[in-house]
Design a protein around this nucleic acid. Sequence first.
DNA 1: TTTACTCTTGAACGTTTGTTCAAGATGGAC
DNA 2: GTCCATCTTGAACAAACGTTCAAGAGTAAA
Lengths: 208, 208
Amino acid sequence: MGTSTVRSGEQIDRQSRILEAAMDLLSRHGISGVNMRAVAREAGVALGLVNYYYEDKSCLIRAALHRIDEHDLMLVEPDPDSAPDEQLRKSLRRVAGAELLTTRYLSLRLHLWALAQASEDFAQINAEAFERYLAGLATLIGNANPELSRDECRERAADIVVVQNGMWLTALLGVDKASIQRNIAHTEDIAFAPSRKKERGLGESKES
Amino acid sequence: MGTSTVRSGEQIDRQSRILEAAMDLLSRHGISGVNMRAVAREAGVALGLVNYYYEDKSCLIRAALHRIDEHDLMLVEPDPDSAPDEQLRKSLRRVAGAELLTTRYLSLRLHLWALAQASEDFAQINAEAFERYLAGLATLIGNANPELSRDECRERAADIVVVQNGMWLTALLGVDKASIQRNIAHTEDIAFAPSRKKERGLGESKES
DNA sequence: TTTACTCTTGAACGTTTGTTCAAGATGGAC
DNA sequence: GTCCATCTTGAACAAACGTTCAAGAGTAAA
């Protein structure tokens, strides 16, 4: 697999081009726009080659979804070169960064969510990625706030993810950037709040 | 149009059944699952009848999207029977209500967003509905907080919508209900905060 | 050169899709 | 009954789709 016949390096290997083309079509035209012929055309290869590298359409889409998930997880990857609270702050701010807030990426994220609703197969990919993102974020929070319990970290991570998902989604709908910035600030407030374990009652009773 | 041949009332008119079937398929299997034959089967009518009531597939889907948008707008409709701040509070809490947080509705919302990304036509429907929802929410906020300026109301509405969209989306992914409740509380905090127009510097200079 | 293997092509097949349409069914007005 | 407009059916068509496959191109080792 690894030793593909890369002639001179100037031409990326076809398999990557095919996957890239599929993701491009998915972000621009949705799942209806992703058909084998369009993918082949976009990648500049023959129709048969798509089925050569990806057994069927479902495999191709699954590969695309895994790529998006890898992208997501990089956001909460520990960075040994920074202090714990700087790592967390950087991670929280990165979700509104220029490289993340592109229409292409946001659209891909959205279509992945939609596909997860349509097919049990894709739902599992999505659920696993969601869980890993949550766990990664909780770890960053725990590193920056050593006094917090594991449950408190996960609780905060869950609250932050809600706001982040809202930002990603609403950014696509064209909400103003100032609102994004205010919500980023709110995620930081949640992340760095002093540990006040359930001291401020907010209506509902809840288990530990 | 209006006087359809409703035999005895026991049978809903076919046009509604067709639209309902299309929305059901959209929520369960995504846009790929919505084809004219499946819609006809689900609605219990012949294939040709779908094209009789809806000129083409695009019209059918557009009708479905309009239905979802009507549903959304009811959330921020003024209720003359309640006091202004009670109206606002009710509206904010309704987004986590049992009738709203169903998989069917959330899934439909999600697929609408995804379709809006795929087609300019659907994007416009979505953008208009988003704008009307934002305006409706801003009005509720203004009624409950007469001291706020119009811009401040819209600002708060935008911030709340981000969190609400996040809740809707994350509810589909299966985040725990407690997190939803905490985020509902946060939308209320935003809505009812005292007017402190830009007093607290936001953005870069924040450090604690 | 020959051999062997991987990569690449596009025609071809069978299926599914959106749409059209002639034909029939239905119900009220006359 | 006849007439007329509306509603309903399913066969039929053309286009688009996913997939298969025999054939070829390319490269490295013999």
